[in-house]
């Protein structure tokens, strides 16, 4: 089993941070690569972020918080 870190992506060239607006899957649930995983907001634009791997999701980030690009907000445990 390997762990795939879920990070705040760089969705635009000139942004340093993003707000975690929503988690789209529940703690501990199973996702497939590409499934909608969470929503972030940068410069008043919301972006839906897909899962980078398939597996079971565990969250460490909190909705409403603002994070630097690259901050780990969870992990996907691959089977």
């Amino acid at each position: 089993m390997t762990a795939f870190p879920v990070r705040i992506p760089r969705v635009s060239v000139a942004v340093a941070e993003a707000t975690l607006v929503a988690l789209l899957v529940d703690e501990g649930s199973q996702v497939a690569e590409g499934d909608p995983l969470f929503v972030i907001e940068t410069e008043k634009v919301e972006s839906e972020i897909g899962a980078g791997a398939s597996g079971r999701v565990h969250w460490s980030g909190t909705t409403g918080a603002t994070y630097d690009i690259g901050t780990e907000i969870g992990v996907i445990h691959r089977e």
């Binding site: 795939f4 870190p5 879920v6 990070r7 705040i8 992506p9 760089r10 969705v11 060239v13 972020i49 897909g50 899962a51 980078g52 690009i69 690259g70």
Partner: peptide, 12 residues
């Protein structure tokens, strides 16, 4: 593209 979109890669 896939890696940047999911936060796996942090490059521009």
């Amino acid at each position: 593209s896939k890696g940047i979109a999911t936060g796996e890669l942090l490059c521009v």
